[in-house]
């Protein structure tokens, strides 16, 4: 069983962190994982995307051409990655920031008010956590508890308050369905 994921958005939306958290969580659940970020010449503020592969087999290609799951956090990412998704794939999109409506009919489209929920929690920047929570609930590829453990690994220098807030955002996303 192999799941190929692409996460995409603006630089600063926590795209790379989301990929690393998924990878850590996969490792915690004794799966094979690879994580590959786009690494542009720009340091900040550009577009960012990353590929994550989580598998029960050794991972062949870290390059993901036709993902099973796409998470898009902004408008340009939807335009770019909706066509790449496998038929019957899952498209999670940040409905708060994306005004266009996905067009494909051979995929499952899951709108998530990621930024709106994050703002409700008091911090727009944790929209990625809301998304991750929603994604693992829908796909069951990883457990909520390992994701919480993985975000604590990723943000090991963050305050307890921040870490708890991340957990709450994961919970909110997870509780959407």
């Amino acid at each position: 069983m192999t799941t190929e994921i692409i996460i995409s958005g603006f630089g600063g939306q926590g795209i790379v962190s989301s990929g690393i958290i998924l990878s850590h969580a996969g490792l915690y659940e004794s799966k094979n994982v690879t994580f590959f970020p786009s690494y542009g010449a720009e340091m900040r503020g550009g577009t960012a995307n990353c590929s994550v592969v989580i598998s029960t087999e050794p991972v062949a290609s870290p390059i993901v051409a036709t993902p099973d799951i796409v998470i898009v956090m902004n408008e340009p990412s939807l335009t770019r990655f909706e066509p790449a998704l496998k038929p019957k794939g899952l498209l999670f999109y940040n409905k708060t920031l994306i005004k266009s409506v996905p067009k494909r009919e051979d995929i499952t489209i899951i709108p998530v008010e990621a930024n709106a929920i994050a703002e409700e929690l008091g911090r727009g920047r944790i929209a990625n956590m809301v998304m991750l929570g929603a994604m693992i609930k829908k796909t069951t590829i990883l457990k909520l508890e390992t994701l919480k453990r993985a975000q604590r690994k990723r943000f090991s220098r963050a305050s307890d308050e921040q870490l708890s807030l991340n957990d709450r955002a994961l919970d909110r996303g997870y509780g959407l369905f």
Binding site: I20, S23, L27, N32, V33, T34, F35, F36, P37, Y39, V59, P62, I63
Partner: peptide, 10 residues
């Protein structure tokens, strides 16, 4: 290559 250097794996 750049991919091997920039990717993460266990």
């Amino acid at each position: 290559d750049g991919l091997l250097g920039q990717m993460m794996e266990p």
